[in-house]
Design a protein around this nucleic acid. Sequence first.
DNA 1: ATTTGGTGTTTGCTATAGCAAATGCCGGTT
DNA 2: AACCGGCATTTGCTATAGCAAACACCAAAT
Lengths: 234, 234
Amino acid sequence: MSPAAMDALPPLAPVDREESLAGKVYRRLRAALMSGRLSPGQKLVHRLLAQEMQVSPTPVREALLRLVSEGGLDLDARGIAWVPRLAPERYKEIMELRVELEGRAAARAAELATPEDIAALRAIHARVAEGRLRNDARMVLTENELFHFHTIALARMPVLQRMVESLWVQAGPTINLLFTVPRPVAPQDHPHVALLAALAARDPVAARAAVERDLREHGAVLADMLARPAAPAG
Amino acid sequence: MSPAAMDALPPLAPVDREESLAGKVYRRLRAALMSGRLSPGQKLVHRLLAQEMQVSPTPVREALLRLVSEGGLDLDARGIAWVPRLAPERYKEIMELRVELEGRAAARAAELATPEDIAALRAIHARVAEGRLRNDARMVLTENELFHFHTIALARMPVLQRMVESLWVQAGPTINLLFTVPRPVAPQDHPHVALLAALAARDPVAARAAVERDLREHGAVLADMLARPAAPAG
DNA sequence: ATTTGGTGTTTGCTATAGCAAATGCCGGTT
DNA sequence: AACCGGCATTTGCTATAGCAAACACCAAAT
């Protein structure tokens, strides 16, 4: 085998092993954070969770600690895990970092995306738009997330991707709590459409600008909601 | 207590609790990664580590899994933790992200730093320069790290700071393995000096540029070393 | 020299138990 | 009604045990 052929070989993939129980629990909790099924202020007690999930406490504890490590859960003074309530400044910081990192990923994606990649994104965006028409918040959130992470994956920057995931985990409960379906916009006005055009045109600058616009518009709405004083107790 | 006085109160600090054993182990391992005492390719077996540290395996396992979660350690197909060897592309991605995130922190720090902050940074930098004069790699690395994280802390962006720490943990073993003390430069030519001047002048653009220059110069040297084929076996 | 099979050891992962500290509940007192 | 004390329960954290799979080592066969 010549050196050139070695260079052309894909890297060896790790041998798939059955996922551990702790890994399964972690994924479920992580998805629950990103999708808002776990709400800000919720307490997660590993023994109780273990009972609910009908597993022993050790893997649940491990899963919770993983999520703490990536910022998705906070520990209180006693070591109990809680879903964080985002202060406005924290939310603002997270969104600022998303603008930068997701914008960077989009720019890179514009250099690397294939027509098939772009077609897949179009299909996802069509479902985002449908969710908007149907005023279906769950659908919009789910497909929007899929759209974003599909885009980011095109950039082939694994460290950045993991960072962005962590930001989504951190912001997920709050975003989902506050989210209302935006009014439908004219199809050509949606930032996703601008991003798709930029990807097709292999234009990194336009791709970044589209993502920035998307996140800034969306982020400003929620930032306003967060900055309001809490409603009087009903 | 009037609303204005409430706004002026510092946030309640969490009650300090004695750090758990797992937390202690985590900190030690993390510091070992950042400082290079753990080398790329090293295998970390939780039972053996527990014996060395004279603690039981559970907290060691928890500490290792935390470090896996933040990217500092990789798991192989069998679930064993290893200190990662950085491929050139991975190193490049990490440095690119550091340039962006640390640059951003420096720009923010330029807006927020007090004269006392800047004096403290000068003192740290003086020790960096001394380490260079003495050709003391350990001293340079230690003080340089202190300089960087002192700067980042001035930005008061906790999410960003945690991300940067994670990047340092990921790159620490490789950087320390390859590091050689750069030749001393004229004092005014060191990027830290440019950063200090930018902080004093409250100039975010110059601050960012100084950090970018620092990281790019340093990063290019190591990227070259990583890109070279491994030396023939001796 | 290489391959195969058997055996012992290692290792991750999970389950369980137990300790100490914190929390919650209830009754009694003011 | 509010406060206090006693007791039971909860909870994090750690230690230990055990299972299954993987690995390492060695001897025998080719």
